[in-house]
Amino acid sequence: MFIIKCPYCGERDHSEFSYGGEAHINRPKKPTELTDDQWAEYLFMRKNIKGIHYERWNHSHGCRRWFNMARDTSNDKIHSVYKIGEKPPV
């Protein structure tokens, strides 16, 4: 349904890509010290936002590299694509 601009390869059909879920969920630094509530938050709770959603994608049938994307989930319009490690656009 949409074209994704891979930051390494350029524009490709979305069928070349795999979805990697919500972005910017940091792995806990000290997992042994987490409470059950914090584990649930990390593992299961998701923003599932209707609007601009920051998410991870992998160019699985291309360069096989991961990157991030800001997409409006109410109309599937892609607002920006940015590399892993970069700050999400406002």
Partner: peptide, 18 residues
């Protein structure tokens, strides 16, 4: 499908993906 949208209005997060 819009459960998370309603939950966000109440300040709740759910373990859902739509």
């Amino acid at each position: 499908g819009h459960s998370s949208v309603i939950a966000n209005m109440a300040g709740l997060k759910l373990p859902l993906e739509s």
